[in-house]
Write a protein that binds this DNA or RNA. Sequence first.
DNA 1: TATGAATGAGGATTCATTCAT
DNA 2: AATGAATGAATCCTCATTCAT
Lengths: 214, 214, 214, 214
Amino acid sequence: MPKVTKEYINRKRSEILEAAFTVFQQKTLYEMTMLDVIKQAGLSKGGIYRYFSDIDDVIIELINRETQKKDYRGRIEKIINNNNDETVIEELLCFLGRYINETVDTLGKIQFELTVLIANHPDKAKKISSRLTEQENGQYLIESLFQMIIEGVNKGEFKPETSLEDIFSYIRVYIEGVVKVVVLEKCYRDGQNSIDPEKMMMMLSRTIIGMLKQ
Amino acid sequence: MPKVTKEYINRKRSEILEAAFTVFQQKTLYEMTMLDVIKQAGLSKGGIYRYFSDIDDVIIELINRETQKKDYRGRIEKIINNNNDETVIEELLCFLGRYINETVDTLGKIQFELTVLIANHPDKAKKISSRLTEQENGQYLIESLFQMIIEGVNKGEFKPETSLEDIFSYIRVYIEGVVKVVVLEKCYRDGQNSIDPEKMMMMLSRTIIGMLKQ
Amino acid sequence: MPKVTKEYINRKRSEILEAAFTVFQQKTLYEMTMLDVIKQAGLSKGGIYRYFSDIDDVIIELINRETQKKDYRGRIEKIINNNNDETVIEELLCFLGRYINETVDTLGKIQFELTVLIANHPDKAKKISSRLTEQENGQYLIESLFQMIIEGVNKGEFKPETSLEDIFSYIRVYIEGVVKVVVLEKCYRDGQNSIDPEKMMMMLSRTIIGMLKQ
Amino acid sequence: MPKVTKEYINRKRSEILEAAFTVFQQKTLYEMTMLDVIKQAGLSKGGIYRYFSDIDDVIIELINRETQKKDYRGRIEKIINNNNDETVIEELLCFLGRYINETVDTLGKIQFELTVLIANHPDKAKKISSRLTEQENGQYLIESLFQMIIEGVNKGEFKPETSLEDIFSYIRVYIEGVVKVVVLEKCYRDGQNSIDPEKMMMMLSRTIIGMLKQ
DNA sequence: TATGAATGAGGATTCATTCAT
DNA sequence: AATGAATGAATCCTCATTCAT
């Protein structure tokens, strides 16, 4: 029988991830080194390798943990259920704005830097993506939103002139832009908040409804 | 080799930048090392230091060169002069779409990674920014666009209900999003072109005109 | 290797210093490089940095070690206690002669080259000086000698016509000369011993006593 | 026929040596690099090699030039001729004191650093020594002094109890000490003149006469 | 299991010297 | 004769990772 319980291992992994998170607040994902984590965690140099095979492993788990931490799925579903097709778009995007605002330091920064990391290491990309356990709430929200719109169209409530595909692209692109700008402003520059994600999302909401309602 | 013409030096620098560019196509700006460039350029280890003092120097010149290569300023001005306030927005954004499409591989990737580089190294940021000679065409176009809109408002042709500040933020955010998504798709993934920047810009154009014209 | 005893570390450091010493016998203090020591010690390139942060660190410890190795302080004090004012000068200087003779290869060479190193690098000078733990025996002896002379004068046993300051300068200068000449002969030339430091010190002794006794 | 006159070559060499001298005032002999001299002289990198084969060559010529510049030989001879055996020792050493004082910045520094240079590179030692054209005045003075003493002994004016060999060693050692201390104080430290070479030589003079006269 | 010593690859940079022009 | 570009050896240093204990 193993001397060390599953519990022990999990606790240890958790401690290491906590340390990794601290490092992440001072460095970018792709600048983080094993040594950084080791030092922060107060581990021995070789010790970490029993829990994580390399820095990517640490990063993946870090992302998974942070993603799981904030589970807004319930709230998203509540919004969807409590609104009709007309107001749900506004409510969802408004919620997304708040969500971005709240999680920019963690998920926003992660998403942004993960993009960079993946972008430059196609080999790592697969490895990483395949091991992300949870869909990020934002992604979930967007998927839901798209679903709502499709249903609205099917029900005849929306009669967009533009193709849905293009509208979806529009939404995606805009949201990517908001996240990028907010991350840059909040995480890297000196906190000069020139952009309010909630307001930005409200504006998007109006545009989209305009597109759908004609 | 003896006294050598200015031309020779320039050619050599140019060759090195060419090599650096090749490296840049396989790595990020912040992953590029002197050694990468040396190897790619087929130089001796010490040789490069006659032309560039360090990797930042290489990067700066690389950016400047790529920026200068594509000078669309004349065309931007032509668009501005040949259009009335109504059509200029559409024309400019349409042109921006084409511009993004044409320059993602270089300027897009550079802009994207430079953001990251600067974001994470405030010390380098100053050094680099201060030596960038040209304003990037996209920035120039956007500034011009904003100027046109302000003039349109002053002339009473546009009567936006939303504040100009918010509209500008909307535009900026959207464009950032387009660039980001296109860069990711074209530069890092396997060329699956799901998004057409020109079409995306056309959509933005319609939205903006809607906001301004009420 | 795992957790290792303090002893192991000390032994390792000691081995490295031993290697550094071997290098020192073939090079000057200021010509010694990390690589020299690494090669001589049979270490891997990165390995040495666990024990010494840079070459200065090595040099400092080397000096401290060599200085501590030869602790004649007890013998110096015995000489002082077992002699009257008259004979102590002769005994001390005679001992200094022997001391110089015995330690030229190490302390003499070190002292000589340290002088050069410090003289030319005021920045390093502070760093190094501040970490030298022991006063070199020779310095200690000289200080003691001066003290004896001062006491002899106070007790009225010595009545020098020349000022003490000048006599001390005379002694200092002469000893510097002896060290220099002996170091040059023993360490750098092919061992042609034309000068015997003991005899030279005996001569100094007679001169000094002459100056003091009038 | 050569396009370039002997004169031209000499002038050029002279200019280079002038530059080397400037460098020497800021660095030690053994720290001087070809590049230092090249930069100071405003030469092209390869150009210097037509005039000097390497840095040692430069150094040797620099020393020769500086040695020749100060030719006190005449004055030394005048002292010898104008004094009897008794006063000549005092006069010569007194003059040596002044000489050291005057030339410490150049010849003193050179002598000191040459010692170090030679000391550590026995291979260079021969090469250098064999090419020094002039005996340095100090050496000449000392040789003359020894000659005077020998003659004085032969004439029966001096009756030393100590062997001449030892007395000569004593003198040599003392003078080496004075030069060393003065160079260190004047050239490397902040000019705190605690030692006056003339006074130190006067003291030596008295000692020596004491040894010879009994 | 844990430790941390050891390894060695990788990157930056400087400088003496050669040699084509 | 002069130039200065090119070379490559030498040095310093950091880090991920392995593995003996």
